[in-house]
Design a protein around this nucleic acid. Structure first.
Lengths: 129, 129
DNA sequence: GTGCAAGTGAAAACCGTTGTCAAAATCGCC
DNA sequence: GGCGATTTTGACAACGGTTTTCACTTGCAC
């Protein structure tokens, strides 16, 4: 229905890593798209609600979004320099989280797991520079 | 040196779970302490920098702080209702994160892992209510 | 007491995000 | 195609947590 939402989704699909709302907005405007910041936020929220994109919070409280290949539950290995992201599955971690929770009598266990590092390209660049 | 910072630290020590800066500030004022919000923020940042308290971000972007018993690396099992927190160690998770990173050629691997659930008291209360 | 560095806090600035509301686009129906 | 109803859009204002600013106070050395 909404071409704007699709446009936002498309930007994320073309991105290697997580992008912030402001970032997506800036890129769309730079490409000449006529879109408002409000609409970008709404599109991202809607996409996140439908599970079409993954959301996480950066250390400084910004929400960042990514169109992930897998719709299933998975985690991310994110380069802290360039933001490039690899989707990773971790059955062991899922089990561990569940076990830790039930062990203490907790129910309805959920968890957040993110792995950060410096990707090969960036560590090479750092060494060269 | 600063008695204010100690006071802030003390509030956290007496708390069961993570507390927000505003929350700590409100409590101190309620107790009659003469302190400014600015100072609370500064104290919390300093404590976090020195590793005396752990920090994490809530889903709505607020920073929350906790004085943890262990100075070592550990994770948290947090009740999503009352905020009560249990410190948990997860050697398996540490290894998994490291392995996932190196497997993709990433270096300087770090990770964030938090487990959320409903604690026994809160799930009992929910059932009763 | 004097001088200086560090600490403090009220108020303002900041910044990402969310709400408001009128204009514009789209849909359903004839 | 025409037309009213509904949805979407976006400029702008508000919001809320955090950070900065800056003048004032406090503690310490001399």
């Amino acid at each position: 229905m909404s071409s704007r939402r699709d446009a936002v989704h498309e930007i994320l699909r073309q991105s290697e890593g997580f992008r912030s709302a402001q970032d997506v907005y800036a890129e769309m405007r730079a490409e000449g798209a006529k879109i408002g910041l409000t609409t970008v936020y709404r599109a991202l929220q809607a996409l996140a609600d439908n599970g079409h994109v993954d959301v996480l919070r950066t250390d400084d409280g910004e929400s960042v979004y990514r169109a992930c290949a897998s719709g299933d539950h998975h985690h991310h290995l994110v380069c802290r320099r360039c933001g490039r992201t690899v989707e990773v599955a971790g059955p062991a971690v899922e089990r561990w989280a569940e076990a830790v929770g039930t062990e203490h009598g907790f129910t309805e266990i959920t968890h957040t797991v993110e792995v950060f590092g410096t990707c090969p390209a960036c560590s090479a660049a750092a060494k060269a520079g």
